[in-house]
Simulated scan of single mutants.
Amino acid sequence: MGVSLGAGVALAHFGGERDGGDTASAPVAGAPAAPEPATAAPTPSRKATPGPKPTVKPKPKPKPKPKPRPTATKKKAATVPQSGPGTFTTASASGRVTGTSGPLRRYRVQIEDGVELSARGTAEEIEAILAHPRGWAAHGRGRFQLVRSDADFVIRIATPDTADELCARQGLDTHGELNCETTDGVVVNLKRWMLGSPTFAGPPEEYRHLIINHEVGHEIGIRQHMDCGGPGKLAPAMMQQIKGLNGCRSNAFPYDEDGVYITGPIVS
């Protein structure tokens, strides 16, 4: 933006009389007087008007580097040993009675030594399974209580080889894959407990409900297995679902959400 000259700005004069030397010369007589040199009109002094300052564009700030996204931690794959020592640790846990009617059946939980399962944590998980609103106790088929000793039956979780050995004592061939019921309780194959079943459309945590509900179903007197009740229906808990669903949908519970017992034709 220009700057205007306001009143009070001193004007500088340029020019004036010429100086011929140190002494002034007198005029020659009779000679016409030399005309005085013209005096240049004073020229007003102008201050330079500064032009507009060049616009200096600010340097763009460097964009912050994106922070690396945290890498999702992969869930550690379950380790399922094929065999173990054949000795067991009993869960040092006890609980309240689950259910309001039917005979009381006390159970204890044992885990084969050397496997990556907490005996107490597993016992509490089984206790929650038996207390589920779609389970046996919720529908008057018995009462259950987790105890440390003096149990009516035991639930053992064993490596495949140990499970086969325990089941073979009852004349059952479990092929390193299946669970079974024995004279003193339930034998659960560790492989099934940890990995679930290839025929079951749910995570291993849900398949554990089917394991317990099926084997405890035998404990409360349901001796025979069932088949699919019809295409698209829920498979009965007393069906050996690992052997195939025959058109049914996989299901872990004895009762549906409306409290209806899920059944099918008797097969064995």
Results as ranks from 00 to 15, higher is better:
Gly230Thr: 09
Ala137Pro: 01
Ala26Leu: 13
Thr71Asp: 13
Leu130Phe: 02
Glu124Pro: 04
Ala31Pro: 03
Leu130Lys: 04
Pro204Met: 02
Thr49Ala: 15
Lys233Arg: 15
Glu124Lys: 10
Thr174Leu: 02
Thr162Trp: 02
Pro254Cys: 11
Ile157Trp: 01
Thr100His: 08
Met226Trp: 12
Arg141Tyr: 12
Val9Thr: 13
Val154Pro: 01
Gly30Arg: 11
Pro133Phe: 06
Ser118Pro: 00
Ser118Met: 03
Thr73Cys: 08
Arg46Val: 15
Gly6Thr: 15
Lys233Cys: 13
Ala72Thr: 12
Ala201Asn: 13
His175Ser: 11
Thr100Ile: 07
Gln82Asn: 15
Thr90Arg: 08
Gly202Phe: 02
Leu166Arg: 03
Leu104Arg: 00
Glu206Lys: 07
Thr162Ala: 03
Gly135Cys: 02
Val80Asn: 04
Lys47Phe: 15
His214Cys: 05
Pro254Asp: 09
Ser92Pro: 10
Pro265Val: 05
Phe253Gln: 08
His214Glu: 07
Leu172His: 09
Pro133Lys: 10
Pro37Lys: 12
Gly232Cys: 07
Met238Tyr: 11
Pro103Arg: 12
Pro42Arg: 07
Tyr255Cys: 08
Thr90Ala: 05
Ile155Glu: 00
Val3Asp: 15
Asp150Phe: 09
Val267Phe: 05
Tyr207Thr: 01
Asn189Ser: 02
Lys243Pro: 08
Thr199Leu: 11
Gly30Lys: 09
Ala12Gly: 13
Arg143Thr: 04
Leu234Ser: 10
Cys228Asp: 04
Met239Thr: 10
Ala29Cys: 12
Lys61His: 08
Pro81Ser: 06
Val9Phe: 14
Ala158Glu: 01
Asp22Val: 14
Val9Ile: 13
Gly229Ile: 09
Ser45Glu: 11
Arg141Thr: 08
Gly259His: 09
Gly230Arg: 03
Ser149Val: 06
Phe253Asp: 07
Thr199Asp: 08
Ala158Phe: 01
Gln240Val: 14
Glu206Asp: 10
Glu125Thr: 12
Tyr107Trp: 01
Gly95Phe: 01
Pro85Gln: 08
Glu257Trp: 12
Tyr255Val: 06
Gly30Pro: 10
Arg106Ala: 04
Thr162Met: 02
Arg192Gly: 09
Val56Ile: 14
Pro62Cys: 05
Gly232Asn: 07
Arg69Gln: 15
Met226Leu: 15
Asn213Leu: 07
Gly221Ile: 05
Arg134Met: 10
Ser197Gly: 08
Trp136Pro: 00
